[in-house]
Every structure is written in C-alpha cells, then in structure tokens.
Design a protein around this nucleic acid. Sequence first.
DNA 1: CTGTTAGCGCCTTCAA
DNA 2: TTGAAGGCGCTAACAG
Lengths: 396, 396
Amino acid sequence: LVLSDKAALADPHPRRGQAAAAAVASPASTLYDVAREAGVSTATVSRLVHGHDRVKASTRQRVLDVIEALGYVPDGAAQSLSRKRKQVVGLVAVASRGPESDIEQTSLLFVEEVLRGVESSLGEIGWSLLISFVQAGDSASQRLQSLSGKVDGLLIAEGIVSSHELARLRARLPIALVAGSPDEPDVDVVDADNRSGTKALVCHLVETHGYRRLFYVAGPDEAPDAIARRSAFNEVLAEHRGMRAAGYYEGRFSAFSGKQAAQELMALPDRDLPDAIICANDQMAIGAMRELQAGGLRVPADIAVVGFDDIYPGSLIAPSLTTVRQPMRQLGQRACSRLLERIADPGLPHQVELLPTELIVRESCGCPSQTVPSLHADAGAGAGGRRMISGSEVGS
Amino acid sequence: LVLSDKAALADPHPRRGQAAAAAVASPASTLYDVAREAGVSTATVSRLVHGHDRVKASTRQRVLDVIEALGYVPDGAAQSLSRKRKQVVGLVAVASRGPESDIEQTSLLFVEEVLRGVESSLGEIGWSLLISFVQAGDSASQRLQSLSGKVDGLLIAEGIVSSHELARLRARLPIALVAGSPDEPDVDVVDADNRSGTKALVCHLVETHGYRRLFYVAGPDEAPDAIARRSAFNEVLAEHRGMRAAGYYEGRFSAFSGKQAAQELMALPDRDLPDAIICANDQMAIGAMRELQAGGLRVPADIAVVGFDDIYPGSLIAPSLTTVRQPMRQLGQRACSRLLERIADPGLPHQVELLPTELIVRESCGCPSQTVPSLHADAGAGAGGRRMISGSEVGS
DNA sequence: CTGTTAGCGCCTTCAA
DNA sequence: TTGAAGGCGCTAACAG
C-alpha cells in the first residue's frame, strides 16, 4: 500500500485545508485522512472502525490497511461530543485525612482497592476512569465542577464531599457513593455492612472471651463509616445487660491516633485498664497495639486489641490482628455498576446497598494462634484466621 | 433573577431548536442557553467563564448570575475538541504480576504512591488523570489504543508495555516511563536509582556485617527494576575479591515467591545456609522471613534478610526490615512534569532521570534494634531506622 | 452497501 | 467591549 503525501494532495474536504497545509511533524491523522486515502467516505470508515458488518470485503480490507498505515486512532473528545456520552466516570477519593496520615501509606489501601474494582468493571465495557483526590478539608468545589464536565457520572468515596456540594453535582449528573452516608438523599450508596461487622466483632469479644470493660477508639466524625461502627458498638453494649463502655477516644483513622489513644489509656490514674480496645480501623489498632507493647503491656494477655478493615500488615504483626474485613474491591464494582445503570436510565429509584463483612479472628483478641499462617495463593482470609460472614442487606 | 422557560422560548440559535424541543428532565445547559438567557453572545460567556478581563462589569454580573442559576459547567469534550487539547494524561499501571499476587494488597503500594504524585501535579494545573490497569501478561493493545485517543500524553509504569507497543504509541503521543527500562529509545524515563540503592544495601551487609555468602532473590525478568537491582548486586560481588553469590532464585515480587525461595533454601542437603538473603523487594523479603521463622530459624541471628522499597509492613514486623526506600511519590511527580513539558514542546530531547534512594537500616540485617520506633507525624524514614541517601544522577 | 450532511458544544479569530 | 461565524473530529440519520 502506497500512501500519497498528505500535504501534497488536493484536499477534497475544504474544512481540512488548513490542517493539511500545516502538516509538520505529522499531526495525528483523522477520519478524513483515512477516508481520503482509502477513497471512501468518512461514514464508511467510521462504520468499519466500530466493527459494523455491512461493508464489502474488498473495501473493508483497503480501509483497514490505511488505518493501520496511518496509525489512525479516533479522537476521544470528538467521539464524546458527537455521541453525547464520554464513556468516562470519575472517582473522587480522599487524599488524606490530616497531616499525620500523610506518611502512612497504608491508609491508601481502601481507596486503592475500590479503585481497582471500579477500573476493572469499567475496563470490561471500554469505559475509562478519571480520578481525583481531594483533601479532607477543602470543599474543592472548583475541581469537582471541572471534573463533572469531563465525565458521565461520579463515584464519591468515603463521604469526602459535603452534602451541599453533592446536591449541586447531583443536579448535573448521576452520582454513587462508596462508603458514603446511607442517609444522603437522591443518590445511590454502596457500603460495607459496618453494623453487622462491628456487632460480630464485639459480640465475639463479649461472648467468647467474656470481656466486659470495652474501650472504643472511634474514627473521625466526618467519616460515615466511623459513625456507623461506633453506633453499632453502642448497640451491642445496650444489648448486653450491665455492660458499659470503659471509654472513648476519637481518632483520625491513623496509626498515630491509635498511639495517642493508648497513651491516654495508660496515663489513667491507677492504670485501670479495660479488657479490650476496639478500634474503628486497623491502622489505629496497630498504632495502639505497638504503643501498649512499648509500654510493657502484653497483647492480648493484659489487654486485647481489635481493628476493622483487614489490611495486610495486620496479618503480619505479632500478635496478628483480629479484625473485620470489608470487600473493598467489590464495593468499587457494585458502586460502579450501579452508576452505570443510572447513567443508562436516570429514572431509576435510588438504593442503598450493603455488602457483607467478615469477621477475621486472629490472635490479638485472645484467641489461640492458628496453624502456621499460609501465604498460599488462595483467595480468602489471607494469612491465617477463622472466617465468619456477617449479614448483608439491600434496602430502599 | 428570573429565568424564562427554556422550552417555551423562541430559540434564536437555529441549531439548538432540536435540543430545546426535547427538553425533558432538563438536559445539562450549554453555552447557548447561558448566552440566550443573559442576552449576550456565546463569545462573551466563553470569555467570562475563563476569567477574561475585558468585559463590562454590568454584563459580567448578569452573565455570572445566569451561569449560577443554570448551574452551567462547560462540556469537557467540546472544550477538548475545540482547543485541541484534552488536558488529560493517562497512567498505565500493572494490575498484578500473576495470580498469586492478586490477593497481596501490598504490591499495590508502588503504583498507588506514584498515582498520588501524578495526580497532585496534575491537579495544580487543572488537568485530569485517566487510569488504566493492565495485566502483566496481555498486550492490551486494544485498550491502550483507545486510551491514547482520550489523553494528551501517557505515563507508563514498571515497563508494563512492550517495546513494540510502546513504539506505536510513541508515534501518536508523548510518553514517559515511570520505573521503566532506561534503555527504551525516544521516551523519557524517570526511575529510582536502583543501582546505588542496591549497592548501598549490599555494601552494608558485606562491609558492616562481614557477610560473605549472599543469596539473591530476584524479581521477574520483565521488570526493568528487577534487572537493575540484580545486576547491581552482581557488581558489588565483583568489586569484593573472592565473593560469590550463594545462589539465586527468581521470584515474582510476591510474598509467596519469597516463601518459595526460603523453602528451597532450607531444603538444601546439609542446610548449608547463606549469611544473608537479599530480596529484590520487600514483599518477597517478608515472605521469606516468615517462612524461615516458621522453619525454626532466627532472623537475623541465623540468617539476615533484607528487601527493597520500604513498604509500610516492613517497619511493623519482627524483626523490622532493613531495606532501601525509593521516592515513589516523587517518581510520579517528576515523570508527570516531564511529560507535561514534552506535551508543551514535543521537540525536547529525551532524558533518563534517576531519583536518589535511601538505605533504611533496621533490624533484619543484624543491626541492633533502634530506640522505640516512633509513630510521630514527621516525614522521613517512618518507624525507626537510620537513613542514608544514596546517589542520584541525570543522564542522556 | 455507501455517501451526504447536519449537528455535538465550545473556542477563537476577525470585524464591528 | 462585543458579536458573528467557522471550524475541532466524529456520528448518525437519511438518501441513494
């Protein structure tokens, strides 16, 4: 196949004259270039590019050759404009919840996993993912607006966007919340069943181990899951006669917070320690555990510590961390498909969907250590630990 | 401000007639809508939206009000098409290097950090990040092509794209490699200085600890950094008279690989153990260390183990892991600004830029344990450990 | 089966 | 300071 010099050819399409004249460093070729070289109309090329069948075989091959030779790839912006669909969804996630967690790479795992889930769902249908990290503080209204102009729908993680801002966005495009507040009106929400998870965990401490004095290290108030977990904790307490919390500490989901909580605890007058510390996430549990150990306490002999999330380091430390796993990847996938459904049909009723969590019993709660933790390639609870699914539900 | 009913108005712009007629569920408003409501031309609105000064104050306010009332946000696709610039860059990263690492959430940290670096650089100038994960195996040619039509430039991480594919892409748009092969022609490459890092680490083992029998657990051959690290290891050996490797194992950067390496080692006839195991990344080091311990060996007393990357769990396990840190976030930032420079001026000469790494000395190499590891909010080496910067360089 | 032709929504000279 | 109008590259009727 011999291609004529683009710039030297008479341009049959007047609108292309300018571009052809400016042919330096071969600007990416367009549909017109292909059509011209192949001697067909742009419509034909367009059809071919999209695998349309009704094309004569001879024509087809010729056009395909030209496309290959020119290295033609359709321009996404033009496609979006023409189709009135960008085939892109945006994901808004937390950059960090405060200065201290800046250096705690682990906090990123939640978002990272959700991200993977979303991307894989999107990839299957040829859509793309635009991502934007927002500081827990700023309103970031600017960036969100501009983002909203580049996507067909928005996934928002961990309630990082204010209700007010959410309302504005909702008016422009479909939105789904991942681990966001289930109370937010007029948006879809997909979340882990924090309540069941927490209850399973706390019940284990109370019923299996007989712990009575429970100290709770909560997450920040802005985080919807922090709230859900805390209130579930209180529920369990209320359900067991005569039990009350040994105390609360409000952390920021960082290991540093956990450390502070532990310090505060150990500074109590007569070191009147609780039986167990329940942390709203693993990060804090790890921070607390290390601090307790540094202070000479034995975990779980002197005091038990448990977390939530089941992050990887939790299975590595000694004692290994008892926790609750949430299906992060799946959260991303479910939220994504919900969003896609809504993009396809904006009239759909809004839903809140809770995915089941799983109690991961390891050593830090006081249970005997398991058989040698495996690093096998099987899916599941990762390094050792008993697994128990807690309930899920789909509601209104 | 009172807005007239869009659908009921006579439409002054003939091309909009159709859309106005179909006015159900208020389709997002356009520049025309704003212009019409404000009684000005679209040019004026466009200028205003972009903060253009030369606009009469009275007009300005009126238009701004309409924009607010209509909730107008410019359509990204149309902007891109018109400006011939999408203000989006793509990031291509590994989904996983094989089935086993699927469940090892930690492997994600490298990409995750790079991602953050890139996104923050981009955010500052109002650009967006499109991300795509690719399986280590597939060519993913399809997805890459389509991606390339949606962005102004591409960042490719960890040499996940073949040289061949790279050549095709390079012809269409600017490309920068993050932790890619420094030998790749005609692309910018930003990488950690794996060579200096490895050498600093191995020299520490040899010179400080006097270890002579070193076993190396390498990463997969497709990974450029795995190659760089392994050859740096060999260099050090060559530089010390009479030293030779006690053996090699080629892993896949997963903890499971590390475990297998350790098993193989322990299965040797007379358990003729090396003095130290150098792993090409922390994941494998952790896997190996746990397996050795499970086999009754003491680390580092019986055998030292070191890694590379400085992932979070490495500072948590016992003994804490001696390793080399690479500035992942910075890698992302540097690669990003390089790419942006090239997008602005495609004529720029290509460069390879190596960022300095840092030796993090902890316990697993045999050094005495540090003072109580801190969880303080300071930047730097994280939980405990001495820090030493190894060289950097900018070449070709 | 293939070509023609309006737009998609915005930006950007060029005039006024 | 403002308006008019021609693209940007592609898609999708609608004809032929």
